[in-house]
Design a protein around this nucleic acid. Sequence first.
DNA 1: CTACCTTTGAAGGAT
DNA 2: ATCCTTCAAAGGTAG
Length: 507
Amino acid sequence: MPQLNGGGGDDLGANDEMISFKDEGEQEEKISEDVSAERDLDDVKSSLVNESENNSSSSDSEVISALSHVAVPFLLAPVPAYEWPLLDVPGSAGLKDPRSPTPGHLSNKVPVVQHAHHIHPLSSLISYSNEHFSPGTPPGHLSPEILDPKTGIPRTPHPSELSPYYPLSPGAVGQLSHPLGWLVPQQGQPMYSIPPGGFRHPYPALAMNASMSSLVSSRFSPHMVTHSPHGLHQTGIPHPAIVSPAIKQEPLKPRVFGRRKSPGPPKKEEDKKPHIKKPLNAFMLYMKEMRAKVVAECTLKESAAINQILGRRWHSLSREEQAKYYELARKERQLHSQLYPGWSARDNYGKRKKRKRDNKPDSTPEDFSIRNKKQCVQYLPPEKMCDSPASSHGSMLDSPATPSAALASPAAPATHSEQAQPLSLTTKASSSSTSSSSSSPSSSSSSVPMGSSGSQPTTPVLSRPIPFASLHPSMLSPPSPFHQAALHSHHALFQSQPLSLVTKSND
DNA sequence: CTACCTTTGAAGGAT
DNA sequence: ATCCTTCAAAGGTAG
């Protein structure tokens, strides 16, 4: 259990969080795109700006204006809408995740808790609509107590049992939405697909605690839980993460259904091995929640464009807000690890055939640039329409590195190094300027901010022309050591795939 | 029909 | 220790 570091990493959280704040310079991205692409964008931008007559008096002209006319409500109140009040849950103190390194006052505020009178920010994601409750799973408020799986005797959940998942007070459990996405179907679709034939739990011996099982069961329709004698977890509750290889991907999707017939002969071994999906990370959880909203606000439907918007919005979130998702993600990973102790992310390798155009050295610069250019044109425009003003300068930066932020870091247990670094900045080239100041909690010892997503920096930068372009300017004048570190990391990037990039920029 | 696109984060293998 | 690759969601799009 990677995540279960016993309370050690207080700082972990902080670091983790830092990772996410790498958006600064987003604006630069737009501005510093590659020339040709920029032209194309300019056309679009201008058109957008023109269209949006009134709007923006603000300086963020294009983006805001474009945005406002498309989705005013969405843009105008991005944060407020999700300003999650850090709920103090006095009663949950004992229940809070023991590992939670952060100070009690902070940890208690984990927004996982939803009071009856509050609407959880993630309600869309984890909301328990009535329909989601299976008959056999009475609302929590009706059954605060949990039946002991072994004895069948009602008992109050132990902190140790709940804490790993959610710091909920016993009484609150039933009222709260389960933060784990897989426990809550979104838009009628479960986060994790469920094989029609039932589940074959790889770890039957695993004991799911009562609280968990109740939560889990609440997410599945009765028929799913009831039949399928084999393949079901000991508790009789299939985990949404388990997906039969044959239908491993979104079985509920029509198109998937259509192609159910396996192309080849039934693969024996694969059939035996259920596809256990990776737990969603913080951003994925955020996406699931926000996608619908973004789509509603915008006319966009393409996920690629939506995701771009979501990515920006993600960066625009305050630390506290992001912290919530990190916390959720962390818990989900924990739960996942408990449900599938032997599971490895590696297990899913090769499941998806896709392997995108990786900026392999082979790809010629031309191809690369063209491709990127095309993408930019294709997706960025829409983004601007709906995307929130790249408020990189907004909340995150402004907000002092509060301890709470630190708390966010879910991956706490993860390597400290990564979190310690503000690397996020580096990543997004963007890191550009703004970065440095506020967010450099970097007291970290390790200088290189490649930390967590060490890979991240590279991929994005390469795939995205924009950030890269902006990279140069900012890098030229790195005042602080931090910048240097960032520069260094970027430099590494150059070395790894310099040609295409350089060429591109020159173009 | 399938892979791609796009985003961030996590994990694990490779160096 | 660092870097790189893959996958997680999702839905339009292109081949």
